[in-house]
Every structure is written in structure tokens, then in C-alpha cells.
């Protein structure tokens, strides 16, 4: 990370350029890191839901309802990361 910061500073013509470049790089990291956690969470959630549906097919409707809400809640974390990204990058 420090090496990347030094690289940015070396390539930037002015401190303002360096600041903008660092903000863009940080925004990219923020978005990428924010997407990893929900990805793992959704994978785990859907995997467990499939297990539950296989064990108890008669409860599949209830499991799918809960799974859909779980996916949506988990995705909210990624959306928060995305909003931080657009505010850092474009605002």
C-alpha cells in the first residue's frame, strides 16, 4: 500500500493531482473490499439454504423467503461500499 502511495506521488505533477489519484485508488479499494464480504456471505447463505431445502423439501417455501431477504440484507453492505465509492470518486 505504501509502495502504491509512493508511486502515485512520483507520477503526480502537483499535490492536488496526487490527492485525486490517491482518492481514486482508495475508492477502488473500498468498493472491492466492500464487495468481497457480501460475496462470501451470500455464498454461505445460499449454500445453507440449499442444504435446508434438501433436508426438508416441505419447508422450501419458507427457506426461500428467508434466503431472499438474507441476500437482500447482505447486499446492503455492498451497496454501502458502492455509495462510499461513488462519493469518493465522483462527488
Amino acid at each position: 500500500m505504501e509502495a502504491i502511495a509512493k508511486l502515485i506521488m512520483a507520477d503526480a505533477a502537483t499535490p492536488a493531482d496526487a490527492k485525486n489519484a490517491a482518492a481514486a485508488a482508495s475508492a477502488g479499494y473500498a468498493y472491492g473490499l466492500a464487495a468481497i464480504g457480501p460475496g462470501i456471505g451470500i455464498g454461505y447463505l445460499v449454500g445453507k439454504s440449499v442444504e435446508a431445502m434438501a433436508r426438508q423439501p416441505e419447508a422450501a417455501g419458507m427457506v426461500r423467503t428467508t434466503m431472499f431477504l438474507g441476500i437482500a440484507f447482505t447486499e446492503a453492505l455492498a451497496l454501502i461500499g458502492f455509495v462510499v465509492f461513488i462519493l469518493l470518486k465522483f462527488a
Binding site: G39, I42, V46, G47, M53, A54, R64, F68, A78
Partner: peptide, 29 residues
Amino acid sequence: LAALLISWAAPISLALMMGVSLFGYLLRL
């Protein structure tokens, strides 16, 4: 879109539903 993708994949197979849930997440983002 999330509901349509899952409801399309679930009657075909649970494995497809898993794939669609994960890649659908990426697609929607």
C-alpha cells in the same frame, strides 16, 4: 431482477439457483 433470476433458476436445479444467486449479485452490482 433478483427475484426473477432466483425464481427462474430454482425450479431447474438448486445448483443453478446457487450459481444464479452469486453471479446475479455480481451482475446486479
